[in-house]
Computed example of a mutant assay.
Amino acid sequence: MGNKLNQGWLYTDRINAKVVGQTVLDFYSQRYGHSDRQVWQERIELGQIAVDGKTVNPSYPLQAGQTLTYWRSPWAEPDVPLTLPVLYQDEDLWAIDKPVGLPVLPGGDFVYHTVLEQLKIQFPQESLFPLHRLGTGTSGLLLLGRSALGRRELSRQFRENLCRKIYRTLIGPCSLSEQFDCHQAIGKIPYPQLGYIYAATADGKSAHSYGRILARSPEKPGWK
């Protein structure tokens, strides 16, 4: 898609009891901090936001069960690799090679330039869904559920820690021991282009990673 404009996107939210009584403007400005309050007010006044299919004013109070939609006008998504080589496939499971720079799921400025949407575009005859995530800056094997059985069983295996992810990375000079354990909590943190990323944060979910140094170099290998 390059620098061409995409087709725009319709974002949908369902109102629950926690936000009943909030105005439409309060809801968007508090929930989606990537845009300031004035910008959200302009979008509402321009008719880009609707409640149950009808445009409203910024002070409209929300009720439980209502559906909010925000139409984002077409924009140029960041230019990233979109090729998804298929490394393995059977009736239940596919494995693809995810390139660096391509997010798995939509978020922020990335909607069509994501694995999820490219699967629909490049393989429209298939019903494929990523069973796990790889970070935007990470390349590697990504497993996709093709059948209901494949999605259910592989999801169970990830949930029960029967599947492991092994990463290889280059880092700068460090004093890490040859083998180490990391128990840093992982959670969402704001990130402009993507909306959020998962990273080390005190209020995240518990996580355990095991690391092993494969080789050391006095230089920064591959960073020349």
Score class of each variant (00 low, 15 high):
Leu149Glu: 07
Asp52Trp: 04
Leu84Arg: 07
Glu45His: 05
Thr138Lys: 00
Pro61Phe: 10
Trp223Ala: 10
Gly204Ala: 09
Asn6Arg: 05
Lys120Tyr: 04
Leu10Asp: 09
Val111Asn: 07
Gly150Trp: 00
Tyr32Trp: 10
Ala202Pro: 11
Val51Trp: 04
Pro106Leu: 04
Gly211Trp: 05
Phe27His: 08
Gly150Leu: 00
Thr23Cys: 05
Ala215Met: 11
Leu62Glu: 08
Gly107Leu: 01
Pro61Gly: 11
Asn6Ala: 05
Pro124Tyr: 05
Gln179Ser: 15
Arg216Ser: 13
Thr138Ser: 03
Val115Arg: 01
Phe123Thr: 00
His132Tyr: 05
Ala148Ile: 04
Asp92Leu: 01
Arg168Ser: 12
Val111Trp: 09
Pro190Asp: 08
Ile197Thr: 14
Tyr198Lys: 14
Cys174Ala: 15
Lys188Glu: 10
Trp40Gln: 08
Lys98Gln: 02
Gln48His: 14
Ala50Arg: 13
Ala76Asp: 15
Val115Pro: 03
Leu194Met: 15
Leu84Gln: 08
Asp97Lys: 00
Arg152Asp: 06
Leu154Asp: 00
Glu160Asn: 13
Leu142Met: 12
Ser35Gln: 13
Asp92Trp: 00
Leu134Val: 02
Lys98Phe: 04
Ala95Trp: 01
Pro124Lys: 06
Lys224Phe: 08
Gly108Pro: 01
Gly2Arg: 10
Arg37Lys: 15
Leu144Pro: 03
Thr169Lys: 05
Glu126Phe: 02
Val39Ile: 14
Gly107Cys: 03
Lys188Met: 08
Ser139Pro: 02
Cys182Thr: 13
Trp71Gln: 15
Arg156Asp: 07
Asn57Gly: 12
Ala185Arg: 14
Lys205Asn: 11
Ile189Gly: 00
Glu42Ala: 13
Leu84Tyr: 09
Thr201Ala: 10
Arg164His: 14
Gly101Cys: 01
Gly107Tyr: 00
Phe129Thr: 03
Tyr112Asn: 09
Ser59Asn: 15
Pro190Gly: 06
Gly211Asn: 06
Gln7Gly: 12
Gln157Arg: 13
Leu116Pro: 01
Tyr191Ser: 09
Thr83Lys: 15
Lys224Glu: 11
Leu68Trp: 12
Pro124Glu: 07
His183Tyr: 14
Gly53His: 06
Gly222Glu: 07
Phe110Glu: 01
Ser73Asp: 15
Pro106Trp: 03
Gln7Arg: 13
Lys4Trp: 11
Leu162Asp: 09
Leu194Tyr: 07
Val51Tyr: 05
Arg159Gln: 15
Glu178Cys: 10
Trp40Asp: 07
Ser177Thr: 15
Arg152Tyr: 01
Val111Phe: 10
Asn3Ala: 14
Phe180Asp: 10
Gly135Tyr: 04
Gln48Asp: 14
Cys182Asn: 13
Gly195Arg: 08
Leu176Gln: 13
Leu105Thr: 02
Val115Met: 04
His132Glu: 04
Ser206Gly: 11
Glu160Cys: 08
Val104Asn: 00
Leu131Cys: 06
Arg164Asp: 11
Glu77Gln: 15
Glu42Cys: 04
Ile213Gln: 05
Ala95Pro: 01
Ile197Gln: 12
Ala148Lys: 10
Leu128Tyr: 02
Ile197Ser: 09
Asn6Pro: 02
